[in-house]
Design a binder for these strands. Sequence first.
DNA 1: TTCCGAACAGAACATTTGTGCCGTGATTTG
DNA 2: CAAATCACGGCACAAATGTTCTGTTCGGAA
Lengths: 211, 211
Amino acid sequence: MASDLSEKQQSILRFLEEFIAEHDYPPSIRDIQSGCDISSTSVVDYNLKRLEEKGYIRRDREVSRAIELLNGQGERRRRTLQVPVLGKIAAGLPLPVYPDTMAPLEVIDLTEDMTSGRTGNFYALRVQGTSMIDALINDGDLVILEPRETADPGDVVAAWIVDREETTLKKYYPEGKQVRLQPMNATMDPIYEDATNVRVQGRLVGTIRSF
Amino acid sequence: MASDLSEKQQSILRFLEEFIAEHDYPPSIRDIQSGCDISSTSVVDYNLKRLEEKGYIRRDREVSRAIELLNGQGERRRRTLQVPVLGKIAAGLPLPVYPDTMAPLEVIDLTEDMTSGRTGNFYALRVQGTSMIDALINDGDLVILEPRETADPGDVVAAWIVDREETTLKKYYPEGKQVRLQPMNATMDPIYEDATNVRVQGRLVGTIRSF
DNA sequence: TTCCGAACAGAACATTTGTGCCGTGATTTG
DNA sequence: CAAATCACGGCACAAATGTTCTGTTCGGAA
């Protein structure tokens, strides 16, 4: 990529990234001029127009420092999602239903690399206990969930098993009146439950563990 | 938190977050004025000064739109680390030593929530195979590593077991001439190796799994 | 009451900053 | 070759924008 850019344009892009990383606000035309050793503001303007045409940046006209970095296909990048940590998850507890207005315990910043590029109304729960070890999820891990009451085959879901009164995290495969729940640990056998005995509470988007 | 802020200051902070999330560049004083229904630019300036004193923002004087959001303790926030994905990790392969100049296969954006606030010269590896299932790490997971050749007791390390010719991810406890390597799965027993048989190759910072 | 400081209002002022215009040289195109 | 296009340089201008200055209001302390 970036082979459709002149050397000066690449230099400007690099400068933009560095400047924004350092200051958290974009540079002015003249900042770019001196930062990239360009002789005139009009040259900077000229190349910024080319970069905008090619989908690497977006500018708001007439607004100072209004340069937004894009990914080269005209899409926004570096967007972070603020995901609220609403509580904890444990085998013996159903996922509580949290009111939208509930104040989160904590908010974590996720990048789209963590959600496979998907966006949605995610929330996070802290795993308590080792009961989900069969899902390769440990005590203290953070699970990212998308609230849902249905799931597509193959989705990893948080499901409440009614008669056992427990929450489990497994791959979801509806099979007629039954549901096959496949542990993520491939060496383990699936369990089968009657469809009426399984309540999907959310779709698992990802898990995070830090040491 | 945020109880040391007046209502107007909280309103300004919220507006700043929304504006930056939407535009990727900060608002001008007058943007804040109209966005928060404030009567005068000087009132905005006044409250921005208070916010700066209290460590919620940082401003560069005389530079337009130069407002950077801080976390309330004067620390930068929302900083993302660009972590290169340098290759893959599998039980039967030692961690290759990657030259600093090597072009990464891919770069992922991480927030500090993913690294427990630590920063460093991290890199990431994609896990191949299920051989690390005992470390609760699955095929396809991403492990974040900090290159190190020594470790403190209790660190989770990537270690090369010389005579077995395999890489393992375990908690590291030096015990005299021996090293106790404790699986992360608490139900599993540790293994003991001669210290000369264990080569620490990196410290595990975190793992990420997305579905 | 008086005093004082926090918070606000309004307007003028000085920079900062994007933009437009005119021109030049190199390269490409017909 | 002539014309068009691209990339650039220099400069002036107008708009955007942060700053400052002078007051005003209001509540609490002395």
